[in-house]
């Protein structure tokens, strides 16, 4: 049984309909697995994740999450999403923001849930401080907190470890692994390959809107020094085939 099914999805924007941001991708992600979507900047990772959470719509193809459309409010109750570098209402405190999010999920035991979530992301000490006073790391944690406050079955994370120091990254990874152990399906966009090897069950490499390969990190690394080497080589080879300009020396 697949949690997330992406079939022949393409995406282009009305301003430039000839340029396809995502080209005919197909993916099937199992329940309870952690899926890593890796690629260089501008590969189409964020565009894909936006389609998965209903922020945009595919130009072609279909997306089903638990057999429902991403726009379905019933599905959205079980879904969590952390965007890249999340932006908040600066005048609210961390607690007030999560209170606002909790009301959108119709969560009943709001105070307890907020306290529990803040504790989980280690932000309890800053709950009454205005968000505008938060550091980059705290903002990332708050972004994760609003994504998991509803105890989602499916979680989408776009660059969750971006801008974090090693300690912060270790803590976030711990939370992700904890969620995985509870059976949450997790879809992660990232370009930090070391973390991918640690936490992901399956990985897809995407470049210029095309999926190059999908498999477990260990399988993909076979024949290469490590996953990073596999990533770079595959992308370079694909760009050669397309006739794109290569970066010398890599």
């Amino acid at each position: 049984m697949y949690s997330i099914e992406i079939k022949n999805v393409s995406k282009s924007y009305p301003k430039d309909p000839e340029i396809q941001i995502v080209k005919n991708i197909s993916l099937s992600i199992k329940h309870g697995s952690v899926f890593g979507f890796i690629g260089p900047n501008g590969a189409g990772k964020t565009s894909t994740i936006k389609m998965l959470v209903g922020l945009s719509h595919p130009t072609e193809g279909s997306i089903k999450i638990d057999n429902k459309s991403p726009d379905d409010p019933v599905l959205q109750k079980k879904l969590g999403f952390m965007p890249e570098s999340p932006a908040f209402y600066q005048y609210l405190t961390g607690y007030e923001f999560l209170e606002f999010v909790a009301s959108l999920f119709d969560i009943k035991d709001t105070d307890e849930r907020i306290e529990k979530t803040l504790k989980e992301v280690d932000l309890l000490h800053a709950k009454d401080k205005r968000i505008r006073t938060y550091s980059k790391g705290m903002l990332q944690r708050l972004g994760l907190a609003q994504a998991i406050i509803n105890n989602p079955d499916i979680l989408f994370l776009d660059e969750p470890l971006d801008g974090l120091d090693p300690l912060g990254r270790a803590e976030i990874k711990k939370i992700i692994l904890n969620l995985k152990s509870k059976g949450t399906t997790i879809f992660i966009n990232t370009h930090i390959l070391g973390d991918v090897e640690e936490i992901c069950d399956t990985v897809s490499i995407i470049d210029k809107g095309e999926i190059l390969v999908t498999g477990s990190p260990s399988v993909l690394s076979q024949g290469y020094k490590d996953l990073e080497d596999a990533f770079v080589t595959m992308i370079q080879n694909r760009r050669k085939e397309r006739g794109d300009i290569l970066i010398e020396g890599h």
Partner: peptide
Amino acid sequence: KTFYLILPKPI
């Protein structure tokens, strides 16, 4: 991009 946090919610 504050909408990115609201639109995926069940609303």
